[in-house]
Simulated scan of single mutants.
Amino acid sequence: MVEAAPAHPITKLASRMLALTALRQGVLRTTMWLELEAIDREEPIWRIPAARMKLKLDGKLDGKLDCKLDCKLDARFDFMLPLSSQALEVLDAARAFAPYSRLVFPSQRHAHKPISENAVGYLYNRLVTHGRHVPHGWRSTF
C-alpha cells in the first residue's frame, strides 16, 4: 500500500528501511553515507555508533563507567545491525535519488537536512492505516 501511495520516493524508501531494520526513526532519518561506506556487500553489517543510539545504561557495567556519557563514547556499545539484501537495495535506491547528499534520507526541500521526523508518519496517516500503524510500530512488530 505504501509503495503505491503518492509520496516522495525518499519517504517511501525510509518507510521500507524502517520495516526491514526496526530502527528508531530518529536514527534512520539522520543517517549519513559516511557511516555506511565500510559495509561489506558479502556480509553487510551496519555499525551504528553508540552516540547515535538511545542508551539507558544506568547501573550496567557495575558502575565502572558514567554511562550517561562514557557508554555513548565506548565502541563496545555500538549497535551492530545485519542488513538483508533488500535493505542494501533500499540504500542503493536512496543513493540514486540523492547522489550528492551526505544524508541517506535527505529532505525534499533541503538536501543538507534529513527528512522530517513526521514524514513517514504523515505518509501512513494519509493511507488507510490512520490510527492503526505508526513508524515506531515496526519495532514492536519485530
Rank of each mutant, 00 (worst) to 15 (best):
47 R>Y: 03
47 R>K: 15
47 R>D: 00
47 R>V: 12
48 I>W: 00
48 I>A: 01
48 I>Q: 01
49 P>V: 03
49 P>S: 09
49 P>I: 06
49 P>A: 11
50 A>T: 02
50 A>R: 08
50 A>F: 06
51 A>V: 14
51 A>F: 07
51 A>Q: 11
51 A>S: 14
52 R>N: 08
52 R>A: 02
53 M>N: 08
53 M>P: 04
54 K>L: 06
54 K>E: 12
54 K>Q: 12
55 L>W: 07
56 K>E: 15
56 K>G: 12
57 L>C: 04
57 L>Q: 11
57 L>K: 07
58 D>R: 13
58 D>E: 14
58 D>Y: 06
58 D>W: 01
59 G>A: 04
59 G>F: 10
60 K>N: 08
60 K>M: 14
61 L>M: 13
61 L>V: 13
62 D>F: 15
62 D>K: 15
63 G>T: 00
63 G>I: 02
63 G>A: 11
64 K>E: 12
64 K>T: 11
65 L>D: 00
66 D>G: 01
66 D>T: 02
66 D>A: 10
67 C>W: 06
67 C>T: 13
68 K>G: 14
68 K>T: 07
69 L>E: 07
69 L>R: 14
70 D>I: 05
70 D>L: 09
70 D>R: 12
70 D>P: 01
70 D>W: 01
70 D>M: 10
71 C>E: 02
71 C>R: 00
71 C>M: 08
71 C>K: 02
73 L>M: 10
73 L>I: 03
73 L>V: 03
73 L>T: 09
74 D>H: 04
74 D>V: 03
74 D>E: 07
74 D>F: 01
75 A>C: 06
75 A>S: 14
75 A>T: 15
75 A>W: 03
76 R>M: 06
76 R>D: 11
77 F>L: 00
77 F>N: 01
77 F>H: 10
77 F>D: 00
78 D>Q: 11
78 D>F: 07
79 F>C: 07
79 F>Y: 15
80 M>Q: 15
80 M>E: 09
80 M>P: 02
80 M>K: 14
81 L>Y: 05
82 P>E: 01
82 P>T: 04
83 L>Y: 04
83 L>A: 07
83 L>N: 05
84 S>Q: 03
84 S>A: 10
84 S>G: 09
86 Q>D: 13
87 A>F: 03
87 A>P: 09
88 L>M: 15
89 E>K: 15
89 E>F: 10
90 V>C: 06
90 V>N: 00
90 V>G: 00
90 V>A: 00
91 L>W: 13
91 L>A: 04
91 L>N: 05
92 D>R: 13
93 A>F: 04
93 A>L: 14
94 A>C: 09
94 A>N: 02
94 A>M: 07
94 A>S: 12
94 A>D: 06
95 R>G: 02
95 R>A: 11
95 R>K: 15
95 R>D: 03
95 R>Q: 11
95 R>T: 04
95 R>N: 02
97 F>W: 13
97 F>E: 12
97 F>N: 10
97 F>Q: 06
98 A>L: 01
99 P>W: 05
99 P>D: 03
99 P>Q: 09
99 P>K: 05
99 P>F: 07
99 P>G: 00
100 Y>W: 08
100 Y>V: 10
100 Y>E: 11
100 Y>A: 07
